[in-house]
Amino acid sequence: MSDVGFHLAFWSLSALTIGGALMIIVSRNLIHAVIFLILSFIGVAGLFITLSADFLALVQILVYVGAIAVLMLFAILLTPRAARDNEESLMRYPAMILMGLVIAAGVFVALETDWGPMREGAIGTQAKIIGESLINQYVLPFEIGAVMLTAALVGAIALARQDDEDLPIHTASLIEEGVLPPPDGDAADAPAGPGDDS
């Protein structure tokens, strides 16, 4: 691809990524923040493509956009009584200073370091190379990663699972009232409530 197209792609995607990230700070609504986060993720995926890392770009969309963002939306919806706003705490000012420092340091390091010889061409067939190195060279981390994912899965389920005593308040009261069957009981055996019609 020529320079013009490449520049166009890089700058617009960078703007998308950083703009999305900034909008997370600005937006007052948590759901809007997640939508901007998705925008940022998509921008990063685009930057991956400009770096000819197609495989990672697709994985980025698949995992970050398709899974992580959806999980966040789900979590927001499942915590309804919590505050929906996306406010900042008093840590704002120190954090802002820190942000400035990090940007300055990053820019300084990026510009002042001699990165050595640069490779010009991109590498093709990345999926193949990554796949082969995952099961040859990096097979142990790969296995550990798999175990960790399983552990996280089990852990998340165990954490988020509701015990019976955690039933919502008035479900419990309805069970006491006899309208609802007890959680492990049979629905047909429940005694009828006194006025069961309306």
């Binding site: 919806l77 499942l78 915590t79 309804p80 009584r81 929906r84 509701q162 919502p168 008035h170």
Partner: peptide, 14 residues
């Protein structure tokens, strides 16, 4: 009966 977008949709909310 909270508005759906305002809040009120989850395991503990009728």
């Amino acid at each position: 009966t909270p508005g759906a977008a305002e809040g009120g949709f989850g395991p503990n909310e009728p």
